[in-house]
Simulated scan of single mutants.
Amino acid sequence: MKQRVAGRQQIAVYGASGHTGRFVVAELRRRGVPVVAAGRDITRLLDCGFDGEAVGIRAALIDDPAALISAFSGCAAVINCAGPFLDTALPVAQAALAAGAHYLDITTEQASAWNVLQQMDRPARRAGVTAVPAAGFFGGLADLVVAAGLGTAREADTIDIAIMLDSWHPTEGTRRTGARNTAVRQVVSGGKLVPLPQPAPEREWDFPAPWHRKSVTALPFSEIPLITQRVKTGELHTWLSQVALDDIRNAATPPPVPVDASGRSAQRFLVEAAIGRHGGQLRISVSGQDIYAVTAPLVCEAALRVLASPPPRGGAYAPSALFDGAAFLRALAPQHLSLTGLPD
Protein backbone atom coordinates (compact mmCIF):
# COMPACT_ATOMS: atom_id res chain seq x y z
CA MET A 1 0.00 0.00 0.00
CA LYS A 2 1.38 3.44 -0.93
CA GLN A 3 1.93 5.66 2.09
CA ARG A 4 0.25 9.03 1.74
CA VAL A 5 1.83 12.08 3.33
CA ALA A 6 -0.27 13.44 6.19
CA GLY A 7 -1.14 17.11 5.94
CA ARG A 8 -0.48 17.39 2.19
CA GLN A 9 -3.45 19.54 1.28
CA GLN A 10 -2.80 20.78 -2.27
CA ILE A 11 -5.64 19.84 -4.63
CA ALA A 12 -5.43 19.49 -8.41
CA VAL A 13 -8.41 20.48 -10.54
CA TYR A 14 -8.29 18.73 -13.92
CA GLY A 15 -10.36 20.62 -16.48
CA ALA A 16 -9.71 23.84 -14.56
CA SER A 17 -10.17 26.03 -17.64
CA GLY A 18 -13.73 24.80 -18.20
CA HIS A 19 -16.86 26.56 -17.01
CA THR A 20 -17.36 24.42 -13.88
CA GLY A 21 -13.63 23.94 -13.36
CA ARG A 22 -13.17 27.68 -12.90
CA PHE A 23 -15.88 27.69 -10.22
CA VAL A 24 -14.09 24.82 -8.45
CA VAL A 25 -10.71 26.60 -8.52
CA ALA A 26 -12.35 29.75 -7.13
CA GLU A 27 -14.09 27.81 -4.35
CA LEU A 28 -10.88 26.07 -3.27
CA ARG A 29 -9.06 29.40 -3.19
CA ARG A 30 -11.90 30.92 -1.17
CA ARG A 31 -11.38 28.12 1.33
CA GLY A 32 -7.64 28.77 1.44
CA VAL A 33 -6.64 25.54 -0.32
CA PRO A 34 -3.53 25.55 -2.57
CA VAL A 35 -4.60 24.63 -6.11
CA VAL A 36 -2.98 23.08 -9.15
CA ALA A 37 -4.99 24.09 -12.23
CA ALA A 38 -4.53 21.24 -14.70
CA GLY A 39 -5.95 20.40 -18.10
CA ARG A 40 -5.31 19.34 -21.64
CA ASP A 41 -4.55 22.76 -23.13
CA ILE A 42 -1.86 24.95 -21.59
CA THR A 43 -3.01 27.98 -23.61
CA ARG A 44 -6.53 27.79 -22.24
CA LEU A 45 -5.21 27.38 -18.71
CA LEU A 46 -2.99 30.45 -19.03
CA ASP A 47 -5.82 32.45 -20.62
CA CYS A 48 -7.95 31.89 -17.48
CA GLY A 49 -5.80 34.44 -15.65
CA PHE A 50 -5.16 32.24 -12.63
CA ASP A 51 -2.78 33.88 -10.14
CA GLY A 52 0.51 32.05 -10.67
CA GLU A 53 1.57 32.43 -7.04
CA ALA A 54 -1.66 30.97 -5.65
CA VAL A 55 -2.44 28.50 -8.44
CA GLY A 56 0.04 26.21 -10.16
CA ILE A 57 -0.51 25.52 -13.87
CA ARG A 58 0.15 22.03 -15.29
CA ALA A 59 -0.89 20.57 -18.65
CA ALA A 60 -1.32 16.88 -19.43
CA LEU A 61 -3.21 15.01 -22.12
CA ILE A 62 -5.67 12.25 -21.25
CA ASP A 63 -3.76 9.70 -23.33
CA ASP A 64 -0.43 10.46 -21.58
CA PRO A 65 -0.46 8.60 -18.23
CA ALA A 66 3.03 9.73 -17.25
CA ALA A 67 2.15 13.38 -17.83
CA LEU A 68 -1.06 13.02 -15.82
CA ILE A 69 0.80 11.44 -12.90
CA SER A 70 3.36 14.24 -13.04
CA ALA A 71 0.60 16.87 -13.10
CA PHE A 72 -0.90 15.38 -9.93
CA SER A 73 2.42 14.89 -8.13
CA GLY A 74 2.44 16.47 -4.68
CA CYS A 75 -1.37 16.75 -4.56
CA ALA A 76 -3.55 15.25 -1.85
CA ALA A 77 -6.60 15.01 -4.11
CA VAL A 78 -7.64 15.41 -7.73
CA ILE A 79 -11.01 16.85 -8.73
CA ASN A 80 -11.83 15.92 -12.32
CA CYS A 81 -14.04 18.51 -14.06
CA ALA A 82 -13.13 17.53 -17.62
CA GLY A 83 -15.85 15.79 -19.54
CA PRO A 84 -17.02 13.73 -21.25
CA PHE A 85 -16.24 11.55 -18.24
CA LEU A 86 -16.75 8.38 -20.26
CA ASP A 87 -13.40 9.37 -21.79
CA THR A 88 -11.64 11.04 -18.85
CA ALA A 89 -12.75 9.42 -15.59
CA LEU A 90 -10.71 6.21 -15.65
CA PRO A 91 -7.46 7.72 -17.01
CA VAL A 92 -7.56 10.62 -14.54
CA ALA A 93 -8.55 8.34 -11.65
CA GLN A 94 -5.76 5.89 -12.47
CA ALA A 95 -3.21 8.72 -12.60
CA ALA A 96 -4.49 10.21 -9.34
CA LEU A 97 -4.14 6.85 -7.59
CA ALA A 98 -0.65 6.38 -9.03
CA ALA A 99 0.27 9.81 -7.61
CA GLY A 100 -1.11 8.80 -4.20
CA ALA A 101 -4.04 11.23 -4.42
CA HIS A 102 -7.75 10.83 -3.74
CA TYR A 103 -9.98 11.12 -6.81
CA LEU A 104 -13.32 12.91 -7.18
CA ASP A 105 -15.33 13.87 -10.24
CA ILE A 106 -18.61 15.54 -11.18
CA THR A 107 -19.93 13.20 -13.85
CA THR A 108 -23.59 13.16 -14.85
CA GLU A 109 -23.03 9.96 -16.85
CA GLN A 110 -24.29 6.71 -15.34
CA ALA A 111 -21.77 4.53 -17.16
CA SER A 112 -18.88 6.70 -16.01
CA ALA A 113 -19.99 6.59 -12.37
CA TRP A 114 -20.37 2.80 -12.53
CA ASN A 115 -16.93 2.49 -14.11
CA VAL A 116 -15.29 4.31 -11.21
CA LEU A 117 -17.28 2.48 -8.52
CA GLN A 118 -16.66 -0.95 -10.02
CA GLN A 119 -13.25 -0.68 -11.65
CA MET A 120 -11.43 1.65 -9.27
CA ASP A 121 -12.51 0.18 -5.92
CA ARG A 122 -9.81 -2.48 -5.69
CA PRO A 123 -7.01 -0.29 -7.10
CA ALA A 124 -8.00 2.52 -4.69
CA ARG A 125 -7.83 0.11 -1.77
CA ARG A 126 -4.40 -1.06 -2.87
CA ALA A 127 -3.24 2.57 -3.12
CA GLY A 128 -4.83 3.51 0.20
CA VAL A 129 -6.84 6.35 -1.35
CA THR A 130 -10.49 7.11 -2.04
CA ALA A 131 -12.39 7.54 -5.32
CA VAL A 132 -15.72 9.38 -5.35
CA PRO A 133 -17.57 9.76 -8.67
CA ALA A 134 -20.42 12.20 -9.34
CA ALA A 135 -19.86 14.48 -6.34
CA GLY A 136 -21.54 17.47 -8.01
CA PHE A 137 -25.06 18.71 -8.74
CA PHE A 138 -26.13 15.75 -10.86
CA GLY A 139 -25.63 12.53 -8.95
CA GLY A 140 -24.10 13.57 -5.66
CA LEU A 141 -26.69 16.11 -4.54
CA ALA A 142 -29.63 13.75 -5.01
CA ASP A 143 -27.65 10.94 -3.37
CA LEU A 144 -27.07 13.10 -0.28
CA VAL A 145 -30.69 14.30 -0.18
CA VAL A 146 -31.92 10.71 -0.19
CA ALA A 147 -29.37 9.77 2.48
CA ALA A 148 -30.53 12.68 4.63
CA GLY A 149 -34.10 11.40 4.41
CA LEU A 150 -33.25 7.78 5.15
CA GLY A 151 -30.78 8.42 7.96
CA THR A 152 -29.26 5.09 8.95
CA ALA A 153 -31.84 3.08 6.98
CA ARG A 154 -30.66 1.23 3.88
CA GLU A 155 -33.99 0.36 2.30
CA ALA A 156 -37.07 2.10 0.91
CA ASP A 157 -40.17 1.04 -0.95
CA THR A 158 -39.96 3.83 -3.53
CA ILE A 159 -37.67 6.77 -4.24
CA ASP A 160 -38.58 9.49 -6.70
CA ILE A 161 -36.22 12.40 -7.36
CA ALA A 162 -37.63 15.47 -9.09
CA ILE A 163 -35.29 18.13 -10.45
CA MET A 164 -36.82 21.53 -11.17
CA LEU A 165 -34.70 23.84 -13.32
CA ASP A 166 -36.39 27.03 -14.40
CA SER A 167 -34.07 27.01 -17.44
CA TRP A 168 -31.02 25.12 -18.65
CA HIS A 169 -28.49 27.06 -20.67
CA PRO A 170 -25.89 24.37 -21.34
CA THR A 171 -22.14 24.87 -21.46
CA GLU A 172 -20.02 23.63 -24.34
CA GLY A 173 -18.94 20.76 -22.12
CA THR A 174 -22.54 19.77 -21.45
CA ARG A 175 -23.21 19.70 -25.17
CA ARG A 176 -20.17 17.48 -25.81
CA THR A 177 -21.11 15.13 -23.00
CA GLY A 178 -24.67 14.80 -24.27
CA ALA A 179 -23.42 13.90 -27.74
CA ARG A 180 -20.97 11.35 -26.32
CA ASN A 181 -23.33 9.77 -23.80
CA THR A 182 -25.32 7.32 -25.93
CA ALA A 183 -25.46 4.57 -23.28
CA VAL A 184 -28.89 3.27 -22.28
CA ARG A 185 -30.03 4.99 -19.09
CA GLN A 186 -31.14 2.78 -16.22
CA VAL A 187 -33.67 3.05 -13.40
CA VAL A 188 -34.80 0.68 -10.68
CA SER A 189 -38.17 -0.98 -11.22
CA GLY A 190 -39.46 -4.07 -9.47
CA GLY A 191 -36.31 -4.04 -7.36
CA LYS A 192 -34.01 -4.44 -10.37
CA LEU A 193 -31.95 -2.19 -12.60
CA VAL A 194 -33.74 -1.94 -15.93
CA PRO A 195 -33.47 0.30 -19.01
CA LEU A 196 -35.44 3.53 -18.95
CA PRO A 197 -38.65 2.84 -20.91
CA GLN A 198 -38.95 4.49 -24.30
CA PRO A 199 -40.58 6.84 -24.88
CA ALA A 200 -39.61 8.21 -21.48
CA PRO A 201 -42.56 8.45 -19.07
CA GLU A 202 -44.05 11.86 -18.32
CA ARG A 203 -46.07 13.07 -15.37
CA GLU A 204 -47.01 16.12 -13.30
CA TRP A 205 -45.05 16.92 -10.13
CA ASP A 206 -46.23 19.17 -7.29
CA PHE A 207 -43.12 21.17 -6.45
CA PRO A 208 -43.00 23.54 -3.48
CA ALA A 209 -43.62 27.26 -4.08
CA PRO A 210 -42.84 29.18 -6.18
CA TRP A 211 -42.91 26.48 -8.88
CA HIS A 212 -45.99 24.47 -7.88
CA ARG A 213 -47.32 21.89 -10.37
CA LYS A 214 -45.01 21.29 -13.35
CA SER A 215 -44.61 18.76 -16.15
CA VAL A 216 -41.62 16.45 -15.71
CA THR A 217 -40.07 13.70 -17.82
CA ALA A 218 -38.14 10.66 -16.62
CA LEU A 219 -34.42 11.31 -17.11
CA PRO A 220 -32.05 9.49 -14.74
CA PHE A 221 -28.49 10.70 -14.20
CA SER A 222 -25.53 9.44 -12.16
CA GLU A 223 -27.54 9.39 -8.92
CA ILE A 224 -28.80 5.92 -9.90
CA PRO A 225 -25.38 4.20 -9.51
CA LEU A 226 -24.70 6.18 -6.33
CA ILE A 227 -27.97 5.46 -4.53
CA THR A 228 -28.07 1.81 -5.53
CA GLN A 229 -24.60 1.29 -4.09
CA ARG A 230 -26.00 1.51 -0.56
CA VAL A 231 -29.83 1.56 -0.71
CA LYS A 232 -32.17 -1.27 -1.62
CA THR A 233 -35.44 -0.01 -3.11
CA GLY A 234 -38.25 -1.36 -5.22
CA GLU A 235 -38.48 1.75 -7.40
CA LEU A 236 -35.95 4.52 -8.10
CA HIS A 237 -36.77 7.15 -10.70
CA THR A 238 -35.54 10.64 -11.59
CA TRP A 239 -37.69 13.30 -13.18
CA LEU A 240 -36.53 16.52 -14.90
CA SER A 241 -38.68 19.58 -15.48
CA GLN A 242 -39.93 19.73 -19.05
CA VAL A 243 -38.90 23.36 -19.42
CA ALA A 244 -35.27 22.39 -18.75
CA LEU A 245 -35.47 19.43 -21.10
CA ASP A 246 -36.85 21.67 -23.84
CA ASP A 247 -33.90 24.04 -23.37
CA ILE A 248 -31.25 21.33 -23.49
CA ARG A 249 -32.80 19.71 -26.56
CA ASN A 250 -32.82 23.03 -28.43
CA ALA A 251 -29.51 23.51 -30.26
CA ALA A 252 -30.16 27.27 -30.32
CA THR A 253 -30.27 27.62 -26.51
CA PRO A 254 -27.25 29.81 -25.64
CA PRO A 255 -24.70 29.06 -22.90
CA PRO A 256 -25.14 30.48 -19.38
CA VAL A 257 -24.62 34.20 -18.83
CA PRO A 258 -23.19 35.48 -15.52
CA VAL A 259 -25.39 37.84 -13.53
CA ASP A 260 -23.27 38.42 -10.42
CA ALA A 261 -19.65 38.96 -9.39
CA SER A 262 -19.12 35.25 -8.73
CA GLY A 263 -20.05 34.35 -12.31
CA ARG A 264 -23.32 32.59 -11.48
CA SER A 265 -26.17 32.60 -13.97
CA ALA A 266 -29.75 33.50 -13.02
CA GLN A 267 -30.87 29.86 -13.22
CA ARG A 268 -32.74 28.56 -10.17
CA PHE A 269 -32.98 24.91 -9.18
CA LEU A 270 -34.77 22.66 -6.73
CA VAL A 271 -34.07 18.98 -6.10
CA GLU A 272 -36.76 17.08 -4.22
CA ALA A 273 -36.69 13.48 -3.03
CA ALA A 274 -39.97 11.72 -2.27
CA ILE A 275 -39.17 8.61 -0.24
CA GLY A 276 -41.86 6.00 0.33
CA ARG A 277 -41.26 3.72 3.29
CA HIS A 278 -43.49 1.59 5.54
CA GLY A 279 -46.66 3.10 4.09
CA GLY A 280 -45.61 6.74 4.55
CA GLN A 281 -43.82 9.30 2.44
CA LEU A 282 -41.12 11.81 3.33
CA ARG A 283 -40.26 14.75 1.10
CA ILE A 284 -36.98 16.66 1.33
CA SER A 285 -35.90 19.45 -0.98
CA VAL A 286 -32.85 21.61 -1.56
CA SER A 287 -32.78 24.70 -3.73
CA GLY A 288 -30.31 27.28 -4.95
CA GLN A 289 -28.86 29.15 -7.90
CA ASP A 290 -26.93 27.83 -10.93
CA ILE A 291 -26.29 24.08 -11.17
CA TYR A 292 -22.76 24.60 -12.50
CA ALA A 293 -21.76 27.04 -9.78
CA VAL A 294 -23.21 24.98 -6.91
CA THR A 295 -21.23 21.96 -8.08
CA ALA A 296 -18.09 23.73 -6.80
CA PRO A 297 -19.01 23.86 -3.09
CA LEU A 298 -20.45 20.35 -3.32
CA VAL A 299 -17.32 18.69 -4.73
CA CYS A 300 -14.94 20.86 -2.69
CA GLU A 301 -16.77 20.02 0.54
CA ALA A 302 -16.54 16.34 -0.39
CA ALA A 303 -12.82 16.58 -1.17
CA LEU A 304 -11.99 18.34 2.08
CA ARG A 305 -14.04 15.86 4.11
CA VAL A 306 -12.19 12.98 2.46
CA LEU A 307 -8.88 14.64 3.30
CA ALA A 308 -9.95 15.26 6.88
CA SER A 309 -11.25 11.74 7.48
CA PRO A 310 -10.41 9.27 4.71
CA PRO A 311 -11.70 5.69 4.87
CA PRO A 312 -8.95 3.69 6.57
CA ARG A 313 -8.70 1.17 3.71
CA GLY A 314 -9.50 3.39 0.76
CA GLY A 315 -11.84 2.31 -2.02
CA ALA A 316 -14.50 3.73 -4.37
CA TYR A 317 -17.63 5.14 -2.78
CA ALA A 318 -20.80 7.09 -3.42
CA PRO A 319 -20.84 10.37 -1.45
CA SER A 320 -23.59 9.03 0.84
CA ALA A 321 -21.43 6.03 1.73
CA LEU A 322 -18.81 8.39 3.18
CA PHE A 323 -20.74 11.35 4.57
CA ASP A 324 -23.78 11.94 6.75
CA GLY A 325 -26.22 13.37 4.22
CA ALA A 326 -27.98 15.80 6.55
CA ALA A 327 -24.75 17.13 8.07
CA PHE A 328 -23.18 17.57 4.63
CA LEU A 329 -26.15 19.55 3.29
CA ARG A 330 -26.37 21.70 6.42
CA ALA A 331 -22.70 22.59 6.00
CA LEU A 332 -23.59 24.26 2.67
CA ALA A 333 -26.65 26.11 3.98
CA PRO A 334 -27.66 28.86 3.73
CA GLN A 335 -24.82 30.23 1.59
CA HIS A 336 -25.21 27.70 -1.21
CA LEU A 337 -28.36 25.69 -0.48
CA SER A 338 -31.78 26.27 1.07
CA LEU A 339 -33.09 23.16 2.83
CA THR A 340 -36.69 22.07 3.41
CA GLY A 341 -37.96 19.01 5.27
CA LEU A 342 -34.63 17.78 6.62
CA PRO A 343 -35.21 15.51 9.62
CA ASP A 344 -33.85 16.75 12.96
Rank of each mutant, 00 (worst) to 15 (best):
262 S>L: 14
83 G>R: 07
158 T>P: 00
191 G>N: 10
61 L>I: 08
97 L>Q: 11
5 V>G: 05
275 I>L: 00
32 G>F: 14
142 A>R: 06
308 A>P: 00
215 S>M: 14
1 M>F: 04
9 Q>P: 03
102 H>R: 14
285 S>P: 01
151 G>I: 10
149 G>Y: 02
102 H>D: 07
6 A>E: 12
271 V>D: 02
105 D>F: 09
304 L>E: 05
68 L>I: 14
321 A>N: 08
183 A>Y: 13
326 A>W: 08
209 A>C: 08
1 M>L: 04
295 T>C: 01
66 A>K: 12
328 F>C: 13
303 A>H: 05
269 F>N: 00
279 G>T: 01
316 A>G: 06
245 L>F: 12
141 L>M: 12
208 P>F: 07
41 D>Y: 09
261 A>Q: 11
191 G>D: 04
223 E>R: 08
44 R>K: 15
342 L>Q: 01
320 S>I: 03
150 L>S: 00
159 I>T: 01
203 R>I: 02
214 K>W: 12
177 T>C: 12
210 P>R: 09
61 L>G: 15
127 A>V: 10
121 D>A: 12
68 L>M: 10
266 A>M: 05
9 Q>H: 12
185 R>E: 06
287 S>C: 09
214 K>N: 09
114 W>T: 12
211 W>L: 03
217 T>P: 08
85 F>L: 03
230 R>H: 15
154 R>P: 01
136 G>P: 04
233 T>W: 02
174 T>N: 14
